[in-house]
């Protein structure tokens, strides 16, 4: 296990380095500069600012310096959005909200999706199955912005009676304000999880060991929830890993639609504003989070499926 963890850690560091380099290269090829706004400053001011933040140096030197600082946990300071505030600070402020919404979204996706999938598989071919299949297929065909904007136009529409949930995020409103964003963010994963659970459940129910369990005289309860479900969860976990990372770090769209001051919305604004350190910081943070999630998923695999040996690393 220790050897495996070290191996994964090395891989993670290499991945992060590459992600950082790619982001850096891409970012620097975006035309424009952080200093441009309504009042274009004089060339002298720009030069001075560039020098102050090290933007006058060649790209490779900038990257080297950045990586050096990154190792010490320093992601630089924001150039524009929140001038001179450390990027780590900004992430620390923004991420919890995104994570909170993401957590509830993924939670409802799992809590509702898996049982629905089991239900559909158990009633295969019956009307319950058909209805659930229609809903879930529609669900995975609606981009989150469609769900979000439809919710928005429903709950902020002309009908006063429907204005139950606020459509503009306001943390002081507590629970109610989370309902719509969490629903919109979790709807796609919920449908996906339900579909995946259904198909892997059916797969599991067709296996020989289910025949054995039936031959042993087990009732349908233990057959489904003990024997089939645990095997069926494996592909569901595969999907959930990266999805959790993505949802946690902010559905960009959902944050935009509901005006949530989260990391996702901030990232888009930082691109528009060419706030280089902020772009770098967010990307690297998100990549690290995805890597962590993938690692957790692999560990979870091991828990669910005793056949998997982490040390070998190969499937």
């Amino acid at each position: 296990m220790a050897k495996y963890t070290i191996k994964r850690l090395l891989m993670a560091i290499i991945t992060l380095l590459i992600v950082a380099s790619i982001t850096f290269a891409l970012m620097n090829s975006i035309p424009g500069s952080p200093w441009l706004s309504e009042k274009t400053p004089s060339q002298a001011t720009i030069d001075a600012l560039n020098e102050k933040y090290g933007l006058d140096q060649p790209g490779i030197v900038q990257l080297g310096k950045y990586l050096g600082n990154l190792v010490q946990g320093d992601m630089g300071v924001s150039l524009k959005m929140q001038k001179n505030r450390p990027v780590t600070d900004i992430i620390r402020e923004m991420f919890p909200l995104s994570a909170k919404i993401g957590f509830f979204a993924i939670l409802w996706a799992i809590i509702v999706g898996i049982p629905l999938g089991c239900l559909a598989a158990y009633h295969r071919g019956k009307w319950v199955d058909s209805v659930l299949r229609v809903i879930c297929t529609i669900g995975i065909s609606m981009p989150s912005f469609v769900v979000a904007s439809l919710l928005l136009s429903t709950f902020a529409g002309k009908n006063e009676a429907l204005r139950v949930f606020p459509t503009i995020f306001d943390a002081s409103l507590g629970f109610r304000t989370y309902v719509l964003p969490c629903f919109a963010l979790g709807f796609y994963p919920m449908c996906y999880v339900a579909r995946q659970t259904r198909s892997s459940m059916l797969d599991a129910l067709g296996q020989d060991y289910i025949k054995t369990a039936r031959a042993k005289g087990l009732k349908s309860g233990p057959i489904i929830f003990k024997h089939a479900l645990r095997n069926a969860l494996i592909p569901v976990i595969t999907y959930l890993g990266p999805q959790i990372a993505f949802v946690f770090c902010g559905g960009f769209v959902v944050e935009t639609v509901f005006s949530i001051p989260g990391l996702g919305r901030y990232f888009i604004q930082s691109i528009i504003n060419r706030d280089y350190p902020l772009i770098m910081g967010t990307t690297i943070f998100l990549a690290a989070f995805i890597i962590l999630m993938n690692f957790l998923v692999d560990v979870l695999y091991k828990v669910v499926d005793p056949r998997i040996q982490l040390e070998k690393g190969d499937n």
Binding site: Q207, D208, Y209, K211, T212, A213, R214, A215, K216, G217, L218, K219, K226, H227, R230, N231, V304, D305, P306, R307
Partner: peptide, 23 residues
């Protein structure tokens, strides 16, 4: 399901797939 396993039980062709791999 009470009858199966108690009065009559069955063993199958492929022992490789007939046992649940996760228990």
């Amino acid at each position: 399901s009470d009858f199966r396993g108690k009065k009559v039980s069955m063993i199958f062709q492929n022992p490789m797939t007939c046992l649940n791999p996760v228990y």
